[in-house]
Design a protein around this nucleic acid. Structure first.
Lengths: 204, 204
DNA sequence: TTGAAAGTTCTCTAAAAGTTCTCTATTATG
DNA sequence: CATAATAGAGAACTTTTAGAGAACTTTCAA
């Protein structure tokens, strides 16, 4: 556990290395911390080394290396802006970040891999992953996982009709909506997210 | 068994750690509890430690650790199976898990929010997020972020032609592919992922 | 080779934080 | 009503943290 100034020191060292691509002198660290004593800096540096964050090469000038710590599995990416055909990328101020777990995670969720093109016009293609939130409650227009006669599962737009029947509507002009008695349909969950990877296995 | 104020103290400590990612000083706990005496706080803290909820490092400033740290925000969801219209969900054996960060994360990536329907037939709709891997290299058929004349940015299928020109092909039958001299087109990155959230603001 | 600059090891100081007390209320509880 | 448990204040003390700087050794480049 590093003290406040030790953490400051670690930050200064890292900043320095990223900017200069070599390690700082003790005096340079001291300047970065706004203090005078290189003896004090040396004490901090040794504490950081003991914590395993850097490696020291004793005696040498600039004798330290970063021990790349566990690459803290981050889950957010910068949201750079909006892209619309025919316009420059509209930058979003304040360097927004988008967090994948916030985007998709939640209780009682699971993922299904989609096979087939029945929802293609809703932008859900063969091979896509859909994130499902478990639950029976769904509103008209939600995309749901519906179980028919406790046998067939299907991914469709949901529509409750006035006569208590249920229409499952595919998003594919080649397929037709079908209406069922409510008793035959069990909603297993609603689609809360969708994702697709374009990374081919070959190209890493 | 903790008394009321001891439980309060535990809560204050946990809140502090989640917000600051380091432990509080006794005085900071006291402020959180609305009391003055750090001696009293110390008594509470020791009681919490005796109950096994925190670990104390005697003497040290901020010398305490949670024994049951909050389960680090997981980023994986169970992949239950494949869903194809008209068939039962095909269960995947071995309870596979899909990790969002593995799916999307990587170096030099960023996110853009798509505006417009130019890639609608590729399942990329207005409002979707696309994950871009920065880089000039792209193969035919990749979806790329292309900068035209250093001005317009656009999301299109890429096609290198034999005569060294470049065709950018939208995925929308209402739009036509356009061919440019290679010098006018700069590839800024290729689409490696796409995601969409169906969670309306209202229904959480 | 040599000397300035850099690293290392100390000791010292002061402020801040942790630790241990005692004292005083207040509130349950048998 | 006596007693114990809870809650808080605060004094006194110890230890850690933060920094300065001297003295010494080593590195490194001219």
């Amino acid at each position: 556990m590093l003290s406040r100034r030790e953490q400051d020191t670690y930050q200064v060292v890292r900043d320095f290395i990223t900017h200069h691509s070599h390690a700082p002198l003790l005096n340079e660290i001291a300047a970065g911390l706004g203090i005078q004593s290189k003896g004090t800096v040396h004490r901090y540096v040794r504490a950081i080394a003991r914590a395993g964050l850097i490696e020291l090469i004793p005696g040498r000038h600039r004798g330290m290396r970063l021990c790349h710590p566990p690459p803290a599995e981050s889950t957010s990416l910068p949201l750079l802006g909006r892209i619309a055909a025919g316009q420059p990328i509209e930058a979003i101020p304040d360097q927004e970040e988008i967090d994948l777990s916030e985007f998709f995670m939640g209780p009682n969720r699971f993922v299904l891999k989609v096979q087939g093109d029945s929802m293609i016009d809703a932008g859900i293609l063969d091979g896509d992953m859909v994130i499902i939130k478990q639950g029976q409650r769904a509103d008209n227009g939600d995309i749901v996982v519906a179980l028919l006669d406790n046998e067939e599962a299907t991914l469709k737009y949901l529509q409750h009709n006035r006569d208590d029947s249920i229409t499952l509507r595919p998003a594919n002009t080649a397929l037709r909506p079908i209406t069922y008695a409510a008793s035959r349909v069990r909603i297993q969950g609603i689609v809360v997210g969708q994702m697709r990877s374009y990374q081919s296995v070959s190209s890493r």
